[in-house]
Amino acid sequence: MRSSAPKSRPAFAQEIARIRASYPERFTNRARSLKLALCLGGGALLTGLAMWWLDFSLVRIANGLGRLADFSLMMFPPSTGDRLGLYLQALFETLAIAFLGTLVAALLAFPIAFLAAKNVVPNFFVHFGARRLLDVIRGIDTLIWALLWVSVVGLGPFAGVLAIACSDFGALGKLFSEAIETADRRPVEGVASSGGSRLQQVRFGILPQVVPVIGGQCLYYFESNTRSATIIGIVGAGGIGVHLAEQIRVLNLQDVSFLVLMILAAVTLIDVASSKLRASLIGRRPIPLG
């Protein structure tokens, strides 16, 4: 059976005219198109200005690719230089820094998150002050915290733990408070209707909803902090970053490649384990496409 013939040009033009008449704001909103054009033009102008100000040069990148290839060849084969035990101890120290830093940050952020949640503390000044405190602490990068704590408590992993704890305290506090604010109101209303106090509403109405989410966020930050602990080790905050910076400084690139592979292997294992733990905590599995 033959398909119906396509619409003629006059009929098609009439259909377009009908759509334009039905939705005039979609076709005649020139202000929106002008704003979009201005935004795109402004973005392109800022990008060009930033590239000029920072002396961005594709020629320099092309010239550096040869040196990068030479350094890559010098990194193989990876070697421990008879320091395998020392490197493994430093790797476990990095994992310990990431774990303790995340744990301390989560324990400190948990009570502050309830103060920062509007649905738990209706007082504007309390949750506004708590949110600004989290913003200020979160606004300082982990590396800066590491430099500060190295100056205060000296070199070593203790400074690394404090740096990660301070940085993650602000970030986790914000995430925890948002999870609390987006909790379903129906369980809370059910506890309130049965005569439960405000504390019981939080305990039995909100906590069962947010604890799996908070646990998943903590696992993700532990995985991320494994990489952060490597970076802050370069400034003297302990861990494998100390040895990585030392070997880069003396251009012992075979040891550098071995240390990088160790870090990648550790991050991959933590990623796989934390993904499974997050899935078991939240109770959801990825939905396959198709």
Rank of each mutant, 00 (worst) to 15 (best):
M1R: 07
R2K: 14
A5Y: 02
A5N: 07
P6F: 05
P6C: 02
A11H: 10
A11G: 02
F12R: 15
A13H: 07
Q14G: 13
I16C: 14
R18T: 12
F27D: 11
R30E: 11
L34S: 15
K35S: 14
G41K: 02
G42W: 03
L45E: 05
L46T: 06
L49H: 09
W52V: 08
W53N: 12
W53L: 12
L54P: 00
D55N: 09
F56I: 11
S57D: 06
R60N: 07
I61R: 01
I61Y: 00
I61P: 00
R67G: 09
L68K: 03
A69W: 12
S72C: 08
M74A: 15
F76N: 07
S79E: 14
G81M: 03
G85H: 01
Y87T: 09
L88P: 03
Q89S: 13
A90P: 02
A96E: 14
I97N: 01
A98T: 08
V104Y: 09
V104D: 04
A105V: 10
A106T: 10
A106E: 05
L108C: 11
A109E: 04
A109P: 06
A109V: 08
P111N: 10
P111T: 01
I112C: 06
L115C: 09
L115T: 08
A116N: 04
N119C: 10
V120D: 03
V121H: 05
P122R: 15
P122F: 11
F124T: 12
H127D: 02
L133P: 01
L134Q: 11
L134E: 11
D135K: 12
I140V: 12
I140Y: 06
D141H: 13
T142W: 01
L143P: 05
A146S: 08
L147H: 11
L148C: 03
L148E: 00
S151T: 10
P157I: 02
G160E: 10
G160K: 09
A163Y: 04
A163T: 08
I164K: 04
I164Y: 01
I164P: 07
G170C: 07
F176E: 09
F176H: 08
A179M: 10
A179G: 05
E181Q: 14
E181K: 05
A183H: 03
D184M: 09
E189A: 12
V191K: 04
A192T: 06
S194R: 13
G195I: 10
S197E: 03
R198T: 04
Q200K: 10
Q201H: 00
Q201F: 00
V202T: 08
V202F: 00
I206V: 14
I206L: 07
P208F: 07
V211F: 12
G215D: 12
Q217L: 15
Y221P: 00
Y221I: 12
F222L: 15
E223N: 07
T226P: 03
R227M: 07
A229N: 05
I234D: 00
A237I: 05
G239N: 04
H243N: 09
A245S: 15
E246R: 13
Q247P: 02
L251Q: 12
L251W: 03
L253G: 02
L253R: 07
Q254V: 01
F258T: 00
L259E: 07
V260Y: 01
A265N: 04
I270S: 06
D271E: 14
A273L: 14
S274F: 05
S274R: 13
S275Q: 15
R278G: 04
S280T: 12
R284S: 09
R284Y: 03
I287L: 15
